Computed example of a mutant assay.
Amino acid sequence: MPTCIIAIIEVFLQCKTTSIMETSHSQDAIIGRIRHIMQLQHLSQSQLAKTIGIDASNVSKYLSGRLPVSEALLNRIVVNLNISKDWLRDGKGLPFDKVSRAMSVSSGEVAVSCINEGIPVYDIDVAAGCTEMTRAFTEENVIGRLNFPNLNPEWIVVRAKGDSMMPKINNGGYVAFLPQSDLQNILWGQIYVVVMENRRVVKYVRRHQEDPSKVVLRSENRNYDDMDVAINDICALYVVERIINIQDCV
């Protein structure tokens, strides 16, 4: 065989081997980052599978390297765990570049008032249903007022009950939002006050992977299952702007 042909074959084999090694190293690194996220968010393989909407047996295959990590899998993890794709795929930046719009306010920054100072805290638990929720934003339902830095005087505040959003939002903590609902332009991955006919919840709102007529309501606390809700069953969505984790402030 001519020397030039042998040289070409050797170069081809060397390039192919290098490509395979680079792919292998890339896959191993991505798997390592997936495991890191699972550890940070205290997710078992079955919990990860349920969160991103795939079969639990496939998660085991991905993590063991028996299945190659696909672009579709990366997208599912990015969307459902709210992490940076650049970090997950290439190791660039930080895992949680996509941060929640809602900012937390420390208890030391909050001043409590029972007079006309600060933004109102509404007792919306007296209301039930869509119409009553709107009517609850009146002076007669104000049970106190809060002051904290950089507040928007148009915000209103309600109490969040339960532990489904802990540790992000404490049981008995408060959330501030503008009383402007927009069901047409949902900010995916953000925390919302979600108003339905017979209940009100504070949840992350996620895009439904299979049915565009629905959304996924997700808790911070992984002990709570996701909720699939039809958009038509939602009366109002209020994006949370501030989280105030103090109790018994009013």
Results as ranks from 00 to 15, higher is better:
Ile8Ser: 06
Glu10Trp: 15
Thr17Phe: 14
Ser19Trp: 12
Ser19Ala: 15
Glu22Pro: 14
Ile30Ala: 07
His36Ile: 00
Leu40Glu: 10
Leu40Tyr: 12
Ile54Asn: 12
Ser57His: 13
Tyr62Arg: 10
Glu71Cys: 13
Leu74Asp: 05
Asn75Ala: 08
Val78Ser: 08
Asn80Ile: 05
Asn82Arg: 14
Ile83Glu: 02
Asp90Ile: 12
Lys92Pro: 02
Phe96Ala: 01
Val99Pro: 05
Ser100Ala: 11
Ala102Trp: 02
Ser106Ala: 10
Ser107Leu: 05
Gly108Trp: 13
Ala111Met: 12
Val112Thr: 01
Ile115Arg: 14
Ile119Phe: 03
Pro120Gln: 03
Val121Ser: 03
Asp125Lys: 15
Ala128Pro: 08
Ala128Cys: 10
Ala128Asn: 13
Thr131His: 12
Thr134His: 06
Arg135Asn: 07
Glu139Trp: 10
Glu139Cys: 10
Asn141Cys: 06
Gly144Tyr: 07
Asn150Ile: 06
Trp155Ile: 01
Arg159Asp: 01
Gly162Ser: 11
Lys168Cys: 07
Tyr174Ser: 00
Val175Gly: 02
Ala176Trp: 02
Phe177His: 05
Phe177Ile: 03
Ser181Pro: 13
Ser181Met: 06
Asp182Val: 11
Asn185His: 15
Leu187Ile: 01
Tyr192Thr: 02
Tyr192Asp: 01
Val194Asp: 03
Val194Phe: 04
Met196Glu: 06
Glu197Leu: 09
Asn198Ala: 08
Val201Ile: 13
Ser213Val: 00
Lys214His: 12
Arg218Pro: 04
Tyr224Ser: 00
Ile231Gln: 07
Asp233Glu: 11
Ile234Lys: 03
Val240Gly: 04
